[in-house]
Simulated assay, not measured.
Amino acid sequence: MYQEYINLLEAFRLSLMAENDPEVNKIVEQINETVANLKTGKYRAVDLTSQLFDVVSLVGNLMAFNDLKLNAFQSKV
């Protein structure tokens, strides 16, 4: 089950890296941390849910305040 999350997050991270924006880099860093924790099994479901929420929150804030535009692929992820 975690592998699906890892694949989606890694694909999303790669698509965001092309943005080359310091604010987007915060999202990439959070994704990196979340993926690392998913791969190691370091945290339980509640902690991972919190980390995934952090990723979504960062994306939402950047979209609201800095006009981050997601392409069709990014929106699906």
Rank of each mutant, 00 (worst) to 15 (best):
Y43E: 12
G60W: 08
S75L: 14
N20Y: 09
L58N: 02
I31V: 12
Q74C: 02
N7D: 15
R44C: 07
T34I: 02
Y2G: 10
L14S: 13
L58I: 02
F12M: 03
A18Q: 10
V77T: 09
D21L: 02
N71D: 03
S75D: 13
A11E: 15
F12H: 02
L9T: 07
L8E: 13
R13E: 14
M17W: 07
K69M: 05
F12P: 00
M1S: 14
D54Q: 11
V35F: 01
F53W: 03
E23F: 08
R44H: 10
Y5K: 13
L58P: 01
A36F: 12
K76H: 05
Q30C: 08
G60S: 15
S57H: 10
Q30A: 13
K26Y: 09
S57T: 12
V46D: 15
L62G: 04
G41Y: 04
F65K: 09
L68G: 05
K76F: 06
L38P: 03
D21T: 02
V77H: 01
D54F: 12
E29T: 10
N61W: 09
F12S: 05
E33C: 06
M17V: 12
V35S: 01
N61T: 15
N37S: 14
N25W: 06
K39F: 05
V35C: 00
A72F: 07
V55A: 06
N61M: 13
V24T: 15
N37Q: 13
L68K: 00
A18P: 05
K39H: 04
E23Y: 11
L68Y: 02
Y5V: 07
I27K: 00
Y43T: 01
L8S: 13
T49L: 12
